[in-house]
Computed example of a mutant assay.
Amino acid sequence: MAMIWLEAVLPLGIIASMLCVMGNAQYFIHKAANGRPKHIGNDVWDVAMERRDKKIVEMLSSPSPCN
C-alpha cells in the first residue's frame, strides 16, 4: 500500500514524453520549412528589421546596372 503512487508514474511518463515529442516536432518542422529556428517573441520591430535586412541583401546581391 505504500507504493500506490507508482501506478501514476507510467501515465505521467507517457504524457511527459508525448509533450516533448510534440515540441520537438514543431521545432524541426519549422526549421525544415524556414531554414532556421523560430524566433520567439517576434514583434513589429523585429518583422520590420527582417524585411529591411532582406531588402538590403537582395539589393547587394543583384547585379549592378552600371556594369
Rank of each mutant, 00 (worst) to 15 (best):
M1Y: 14
M59N: 09
N67P: 03
A32C: 01
N42W: 13
A48F: 11
I4M: 11
S61G: 02
Q26M: 13
A16W: 12
M22L: 09
V9C: 04
A32V: 01
L19C: 05
L60T: 04
I14K: 11
S62A: 15
N24K: 14
V21G: 04
D53F: 08
N42M: 15
A2V: 15
M49R: 13
V9K: 12
I40E: 12
I56S: 05
N34D: 03
S17K: 11
G23W: 07
S61R: 13
E58C: 01
E7P: 08
K38A: 09
M59K: 14
L10K: 13
D46C: 04
M22P: 00
M49F: 10
Y27Q: 04
K54F: 07
A16P: 00
I14H: 01
Y27D: 03
L12G: 07
M3Q: 09
P63D: 05
V21S: 04
I15N: 04
F28W: 14
A33C: 10
S64M: 01
K31I: 00
C66H: 13
D53T: 05
G35S: 01
W5Q: 06
M1V: 08
S62V: 00
L60M: 07
C66G: 03
Q26E: 07
K38M: 09
S17N: 05
I40L: 06
W5R: 11
P65Q: 02
S61W: 06
E58S: 07
N42Q: 12
R36M: 03
M59I: 01
G23I: 05
K54P: 00
R51M: 08
L6M: 13
S62T: 09
A16V: 05
V21I: 15
G13L: 09
A32L: 06
V9W: 15
D53G: 06
R51V: 12
L6E: 05
E58R: 14
M22G: 03
D53L: 09
E7A: 07
S62L: 01
R52E: 04
G23S: 11
V21H: 10
Y27L: 03
P37D: 05
M49G: 01
S64Y: 00
K38T: 01
W45F: 07
G41P: 00
M3K: 15
Q26W: 14
I40G: 03
G13F: 01
L19H: 06
E7M: 13
H39C: 06
A48N: 10
Y27P: 00
I4Q: 14
M22T: 14
N24Q: 14
A16S: 09
M22N: 11
M18H: 05
W5N: 10
A33R: 15
G35Y: 05
V21K: 09
A32R: 15
K31Q: 11
S61M: 14
V57N: 08
S17G: 02
K31D: 03
A25V: 08
A48P: 00
D53A: 08
N24C: 07
